[in-house]
Design a protein around this nucleic acid. Structure first.
Length: 713
DNA sequence: CAGCTATTCGTTTTT
DNA sequence: CGAATAGCTG
């Protein structure tokens, strides 16, 4: 493009140093809003342009798909698309998935292994434990997950298990893992753990993948777990050419196995590592930054930083105490509405952040009442919706008929005369003969263990799946796009010219993926099923979701020239998450604090800042005899970082609120304001009560509503 | 077998 | 107050 003057501009000295440093490993300690994404994208651009690195040998890893998307968009603005071709910008999970698909054989898996989501996994644990106690099941699941994230197998877990509950969990872990393997399935944690094991244990695999990674960049390094750290080590090898960017003050994922110590560990494992601090904040006005610094100042710090900004003092932070959750929501909705008018701002300039998803409920209600458009991030995810899981279960089964949970779900949805007792008989037979449920259908007939009326629908279903498998398998599209330099293509569409020229003309029987998908939906009468099950409106919404899924799959199939089988293998839950979010409409953003990390908004409303909710407290925190000393303190510290993350999302104004009362189950609870509010400096100067919000009477509220509706119309 | 009613039970954050 | 599940009936 423009060789010569492409050395990054618009960077401060520290950022510039971080971008240019290539003599070895590099650790960038980036405070909130200090431009870490800019550093990463500029560095990628620098590597591509100035250093002549080929795109397909640069890998950038993030934690969320949103972050990955953001990053590739920003890179796209910096460099020519051709130059960036083949670059990998993806989450750890999707890189892990790609590695696992490619190296499936080395991991003892067939290429078409299934991926269990959290629900599938929980159901499996429920089967293994006899308990119906959901809390216990979740606890076991969590424990197993932590072990997996720590790269501990069942043996190691058994050794490490101290408490009776851990010993029980270790037992479950063993059979859980064995069962997954029998199903030819992996869970989310395996997408990280198995690649880590493969890279460490298999020299051939390690060398192959090392050879593809000339430079590695890792975002949000403070949120890596043991497996992820090992993956970084294995991929970079002794060359150790990588840049890790992180901020220990924003470590908020300890509960899922992330260890901040990984940051410090880098300086130990790589003594020559170059450590660069980014301390200038470009996001927030000083009043916000001051509050943030005060709060986080209460935490011990691995790497002390002093954030500063030259954006001016800004307006005072507002703190409001409200009567209850509903009033709080109404107050926020109203104030946003007024502020948009006064500031001549857009809806999208406002965000409402909260600790837990349920808090979105009252907020949604209030926003709807005032006709304020909103979008929710981090709520129930797309692939958690039953209709999506239903459809995917068919695809999973087509790709992998060892996947018993998929079999059960598909066979019984929609209802087709296959019920509890049928499945139980089939299950017992299958277990006794070491068969999958699918395979058992064809064997059990001869045994006469099932009545004809039970066997019939089973056979019909299994044959239906077989037909799909045949059609999917016969559809061998020629060119898989060249997989020579393999880390390619997460975002860069692989389409280009190859797909169109190399694709065979479909013959009379159209077995292309899109056609099969259509036929499948038709055959199972899924739309009708939805309308039978739900009311008109919700049914339509769900059907729309299905259509969205299908059209996404079709698009993917067409663009990348994939057969249905390829599609199902390459496109699973994880890659589905990478689907382009709908265009961002002008709407208020509702988000959990966790999901807000990395984002910024001009005006932020932080709600539910109460003892017990924001420093979130378990019920009987001190009653837990197994809790080691200091566990509580650590939890509080993580909650404090969460508060810090919330505060630092705001650019110009921050509004904190809390409820004096909150109705829990059946009874109202008296709540105290969060300790974090005092830690911010309240009620010191620079922070004030929100004016004109407390104690709005219903009639006043109605009046305001009418006024607003007039304005809106 | 499948859909309906009655009852019970309430921690969180996400890939 | 709401959702998830057990249990019952057609």
């Amino acid at each position: 493009m423009h060789p010569g003057h492409t050395v990054p501009v618009d960077l401060n000295p520290a950022q510039r140093e971080a971008v240019l440093y290539l003599n070895g490993p590099c650790l960038v300690l980036a405070g909130a809003g200090s431009g870490k994404t800019r550093v990463i994208t500029q560095k990628m651009a620098y590597l591509l342009r100035e250093c002549g690195y080929p795109g397909n040998r640069i890998v950038a890893l993030t934690f969320t798909n949103k972050a990955a998307r953001e990053m590739s968009e920003r890179l796209r603005r910096l460099v020519d698309a051709r130059m960036a071709r083949g670059i990998t910008i993806s989450t750890f999970h999707s890189l892990g998935l790609r590695l696992l698909r490619e190296e499936a054989g080395h991991a003892g898996l067939k290429k078409s292994f299934s991926i269990f989501d959290a629900n599938d996994a929980l159901a499996l644990i429920q089967e293994l434990l006899v308990t119906t106690d959901k809390a216990r099941l979740k606890a076991v699941q969590q424990t197993i997950s932590l072990w997996k994230n720590a790269l501990m197998g069942p043996d190691a877990a058994e050794q490490a298990a101290a408490s009776p509950s851990d010993i029980e969990a270790a037992k479950v872990y063993r059979s859980y893992d064995a069962t997954l393997r029998a199903y030819q399935a992996v869970d989310f944690d395996d997408l990280i753990r198995l690649p880590a094991m493969l890279l460490e244990g298999n020299t051939e695999v390690r060398q192959r993948w090392q050879g593809r990674v000339l430079y590695l960049l890792v975002d949000e390094y403070q949120d890596t777990n043991v497996c992820q750290y090992r993956i970084v080590q294995a991929l970079t090898g002794s060359r150790a050419m990588f840049t890790a960017v992180g901020d220990d003050d924003q470590a908020i994922y300890a509960w899922r196995g992330a260890t901040v110590e990984n940051l410090a560990k880098l300086t130990v494992d790589y003594p020559a590592i170059q450590v660069i601090k980014l301390e200038q904040n470009y996001r927030s006005v000083q009043s916000i930054l001051t509050a943030a610094n005060r709060v986080i100042g209460k935490n011990p710090n691995l790497f002390p930083k002093t954030l500063w900004s030259d954006l001016g003092q800004g307006e005072a932070i507002q703190v409001a105490a409200l009567d209850n959750e509903q009033v709080e929501a109404e107050s926020v909705a109203f104030r946003i509405s007024a502020a948009r008018f006064e500031r001549k701002a857009q809806w999208r300039d406002f965000a409402v952040l909260y600790r837990s998803n349920q808090q979105a409920r009252s907020m949604e209600q209030a926003l709807r009442d005032l006709r304020i458009p909103y979008t929710i991030a981090g709520g129930q995810s797309f692939f958690d919706k039953p209709e999506i899981r239903d459809v995917l279960s068919y695809l999973r089964l087509v790709a992998n008929d060892d996947d018993d949970p998929a079999f059960i779900r598909a066979a019984t949805t929609p209802r087709r005369g296959i019920g509890q007792s049928t499945l139980q008989a089939l299950g017992e037979f299958a277990a006794g003969h070491h068969l999958s449920l699918f395979a058992a259908v064809f064997e059990i007939g001869a045994t006469g263990r099932l009545a004809q009326r039970q066997l019939e629908p089973l056979l019909a279903f299994a044959r239906f799946i077989q037909r799909l498998q045949q059609r999917a398998g016969r559809d061998v599209t020629v060119s898989q796009p060249v997989q020579g330099s393999l880390l390619s293509v997460d975002h860069e569409t692989q389409s280009g010219q190859a797909v169109f020229t190399d694709r065979p003309v479909p013959d009379q029987v159209d077995d292309s993926a899109p056609r099969i998908l259509d036929d499948l939906l038709n055959a199972i009468q899924y739309e009708r099923h939805l309308y039978d099950l739900y009311d008109e409106k919700p049914a339509e919404v769900r059907w729309q979701n299905v259509l969205e899924l299908i059209s996404w799959l079709k698009r993917k199939a067409t663009e990348d020239g994939l057969s249905l089988l390829d599609l199902v293998q390459h496109v699973s839950l994880v890659t589905m998450l990478e689907r382009n979010e709908d265009d961002d409409p002008d709407a208020v953003r509702l988000s959990t604090l966790h999901a807000s990390k990395g984002l910024e908004y001009p005006h932020v409303y932080l709600i539910g800042v109460e003892e017990g909710l924001l420093p979130h407290m378990g019920r009987d925190e001190d009653l837990d005899p197994e809790a080691p000393d200091g566990a509580l303190i650590q939890r509080i510290q993580e909650e404090r970082r969460l508060m810090y993350v919330g505060i630092t999302r705001a650019r110009y104004s921050l509004h904190v609120s809390w409820c004096k009362r909150r109705r829990k189950a059946r009874e109202d609870q008296i709540r105290e304001r969060s300790r974090f509010i005092e830690e911010m400096g309240f009620p010191a100067e620079g922070i004030s009560d929100a004016p004109g919000t407390p104690g709005i009477t219903p009639s006043e509220r109605l009046g305001m509503l009418k006024t607003l509706l007039k304005k809106g119309a």
